[in-house]
Each structure stands twice: as structure tokens, then as C-alpha cells.
Amino acid sequence: MEGSRIDVLMVEDDANDVAVALRAFRRHSLEDRVCVLRDGAELVDYLQTHDLRVRSPKVILLDLKMPRLDGRGALRELRSRPETRNIPVVMVSSSNLQSDVRDCYELGANSFVVKQLGPLSPGTYLVDTVRYWLELNEATS
């Protein structure tokens, strides 16, 4: 069944970032477990159209700045619904502005990761992040 292996929802509107991330996931054989969504609205749609009791995502990588429904709005939406309240959300942003970080934690984010730019192995930090949530973190069902 399609989407049955999806454990990671990546919500990102920047095609370059998506490409870099998917390359990194591919190199670490995580490509199949990742579903990319373009913005917060798509995320909400996804969560409404999929039966979360069958398979709930183990982590959502949520960009902060997006068109339509942005990271903050999507997070607020998630945390306001009982079936999505406990899904781990990692905010991924190019901003390390203290106000952004504080806001996200207050809205119920589980982690905040600043987008890393480096000449070596682009996107690897996302692989590291996802691995933690997939392999180390114990989620509630």
C-alpha cells in the first residue's frame, strides 16, 4: 500500500533544499521513508487523508518560512488536534533568531535545527536528525 513505509514528513518549499535533502536521504537509503510536502496546508491535508492509527509519522521536519500555511501555523494546527498532538516535530530553519526558536518551543516543537551550510556532504545534518527520531527516539503510539 502506497505510503505505508512513510515515517518522515518533510515540509519544505525550497526546491534546492529538497533536492539536497533527498540526495542525502538517498545516499543513506532513507528515501523511501520520506514524503516531501510543499507547505503547511499540504501537511494538514496529508494528515487528514491518511489513517494515522495505521501508520503515524515518526517525525515531521517542518520549515519555518513557507507560503500559504507557514511553520508556526502548521505547528499550531497539529498541536490543536488530539490525533496529531504527540507527533514529534523538528523545526528546520535558516534562522537562529531567538524569538523564532522561543516561539516554536512554546507552540510545542520538539526540536529546532538550523539549516547547515557546509562544503562537506550537504544535507547530512538532516540524515543525522532523522536517524535519531527513527532509531533512538521512542514514540507514543
Partner: peptide, 8 residues
Amino acid sequence: GAVINFAA
């Protein structure tokens, strides 16, 4: 970032 990433 894209320049750096894709160059890398």
C-alpha cells in the same frame, strides 16, 4: 546556501 550545497 544552494550555491555552496550544489558546488559541494
